[in-house]
Design a protein around this nucleic acid. Structure first.
Lengths: 202, 202
DNA sequence: CCTACCGATCGGTAGG
DNA sequence: CCTACCGATCGGTAGG
């Protein structure tokens, strides 16, 4: 791996763990195994480094998202989208932590990103859910856009903090480890609060 | 108000907005209107200030929680607990932001706090839900402890970031403002994914 | 990619 | 609660 991507990897990890303000350029350089000025040759400033870290995450996001949307629209199964979205974050919890920190630390910047990259497909998903409501597939009391926001929040935030929560959600012989219990219950809550007919009630 | 509580108020606000590492003692002193060394006379270090900010939040928590628990156990209505819990955070979003930041920034410290203050009542709530399951009031496929964790995560994280999300969840003529839409859908998701019989499906 | 170095700000102390 | 001050670390630059 070349130096540039190694810098991005370490910066992503450290920003996710300690936050932007809690991480020094020196720390990142140490983790990579170079001197600080060498790092600042590749990225002119700490701020530019953060922008590149974010851009990388956004690129992943944009590569995966169209596939998820297609799934939801062709199968009329919105829970498939939610499952895939959850997997996307669980696969690398640093993504979830980074996303959450950026929302807290730079709300106006995050608003711009959300407006450009997330809003369009939230609206699309919302429209699909509205149609499904008219067909009686989806519960009448659902607020589609609000529902999407709640489920995404649960997936992102839950995944970001799940390892810390193992003290109140320990592994269970029949229900699996902490991450598994989180993932399964998240999907169950999302699905059972959406559809009119729903298995496994009793 | 005396100086000490004014310092705590401003520190709480700034830690919630910018994070601990993103906030300097100088900034807090400026907000209060005193010099930095004067602040450090009241709180010996920045770290001691953070501990006091957290202790204050915990005190609020411990004053409110017993009442919520009582509600849930006497009425056998768990959603009442969830509603009250949501209100507790929506009433002051800084609490939610502070709680979320502390979980991200100091996971092991948060684990200790969770084990001491939150675990006991999560287990109690879990046991109540297990009994309600046997009575057929609550769905058979619920993982009670995992359910509690998901709903609390949704309430805390959702409230912490809701103002930033207004770009993807705008005010709606019939459904109310962003916060209201969030609060209502959160309660709806929590309730409809819990009970076997449930109103408002179609 | 390195050595050497910069001004600014950090949390904190001495002394009144 | 203040003025004056401290060493350490911050992000960043010059020059090779």
């Amino acid at each position: 791996m070349d130096v540039r991507s190694e810098i991005l990897t370490q910066a992503t990890r450290l920003f996710a763990e300690q936050g932007y303000d809690g991480t020094s350029v020196q720390q990142i350089a140490d983790a990579v195994g170079i001197r600080k000025p060498s790092l600042l040759y590749h990225f002119r400033s700490k701020d530019e480094l953060r922008e590149n870290v974010l851009a990388e995450m956004l690129a992943h996001w944009n590569a995966v998202l169209p596939g998820l949307l297609l799934k939801a629209s062709t199968e009329e199964r919105f829970d498939a989208t939610m499952e895939a979205l959850t997997e996307f974050f669980i696969e690398d919890p640093d993504r979830a932590r980074l996303f959450l920190r950026e929302t807290l630390d730079r709300p106006s910047h995050m608003q711009a990103m959300l407006g450009e990259f997330v809003k369009p497909w939230i609206q699309l998903l919302g429209a699909q859910l509205e149609r499904a409501k008219e067909q009686g597939l989806v519960r009448a009391d659902v607020d589609p856009q609000a529902y999407a926001v709640e489920v995404i929040t649960m997936a992102v935030a839950g995944t970001a903090v799940i390892d810390t929560l193992q003290v109140i959600l320990p592994a269970h012989p029949a229900r699996g480890g902490t991450r598994k219990r989180h993932a399964r219950e998240l999907i169950r809550v999302a699905r059972s609060s959406l559809y009119t007919d729903d298995e496994g009630k009793r």
